[in-house]
Design a protein around this nucleic acid. Structure first.
Lengths: 184, 184
DNA sequence: CATTTTATCGAACAGAGTGTTCAGAAACTT
DNA sequence: AAGTTTCTGAACACTCTGTTCGATAAAATG
């Protein structure tokens, strides 16, 4: 890839990241991004069709990184085997989120939250779907799934919204204590 | 209030409701609302400052109705007393949501979802905050609250997103089975 | 019923933002 | 050095927003 393209691309990403610390995504204009990134107007549009596509791609890169290596098939196999490994995987995810501390809070408003949730749900579904079904609670399978996954994602969002203060271990510990049934 | 005002107001509400069945809120323009409602442009703006304020007020009316009579101080006192009454209150809320079946699904996208969540959280917080703290799980109080309330709201959203197919009793039953600790 | 008050209408307007185009400058490749 | 690709930025057409104002219609008042 041409160096120039990489340069403008990262310039745009960085600009948006910086702007997101001050403004909500909805109130940021393309012109602001262009000025902050120090690029020409037509350059922006040759990289991204719209402002929304930019956000989408930025989120995709970010979230795919957050969930990437944890889902390597060999690893996920190990993880879901027993209680302690599940705990380790969940903690691992939180640490990955912690890596993006700077971005994640400002990104976590409006449309981007949905992208995050979609990614997260798909990921947890594929990593834990099977395990959850085998949990010992007398409710329909689909309900069980939505409850366990939904409450986890909600917990993570809560953790992020409050500034990622608590240690991942603490969050996962509390979360698992709140889960129903014997899920060892 | 002037009859004319009431007429335009409901015309606008109805128009937006109808449009929301076909388009997402973000892609609806003021002009579309005006045309659909058959009113003059300046009339719209004499009623609502912006499109967002319209949505906000519409949601406020709707959600305050959903949560209104269930939170009458005397009643909530009864409700949180014992296990069965809590169940009854939760079911009651779902039935109220069911009353708005037509609107609620289309409204439940984008910005309006946040208004719903805010209302819902505040309500549950005030109705059950005390009760939750006394639940027998060894996690911090604030975590306990966010988990119990968050997972309930998520469950309700899940129920709505799938078309409110299940009976309220069924949803509440499953939900309570998933809750941790002895909360009788 | 006549009068006064208030709401609606709609065209016209200014302003902000979007996304496109294009010719020349600048940077990369071979 | 020549050829290719990307960047630049001004200019443009468009869409949507929110305001203004005089004319018209409807409601409230006495």
């Amino acid at each position: 890839m041409d160096r120039r393209q990489i340069k403008t691309r990262t310039a745009i990403y960085d600009a948006l990241t910086r702007l997101l610390r001050k403004y909500r995504f909805e109130e940021i204009t393309v012109q602001q991004i262009i000025d902050e990134a120090n690029i020409g107007r037509s350059t922006f549009y040759s990289h991204f069709e719209t402002k929304d596509r930019l956000l989408e791609q930025m989120c995709n890169e970010m979230f795919s990184h957050v969930f990437s290596d944890t889902l390597a098939p060999e690893k996920s196999h190990d993880y879901s085997k027993n209680h302690e490994d599940k705990r380790a995987l969940l903690e691992h995810i939180l640490y990955h989120i912690l890596d993006h501390k700077e971005n994640i809070r400002s990104i976590m408003n409006g449309e981007s939250e949905k992208i995050f949730t979609r990614y997260f749900t798909e990921y947890l579904e594929s990593a834990f779907g099977e395990v959850i079904v085998h949990m010992d609670v007398d409710v329909p399978d689909d309900f069980k799934k939505q409850f366990v996954i939904g409450s986890f994602i909600h917990t993570v969002k809560w953790w992020i919204a409050r500034g990622l203060k608590e240690k991942p271990e603490k969050i996962i510990d509390s979360y698992m204590k709140c889960l129903p049934g014997k899920n060892e």
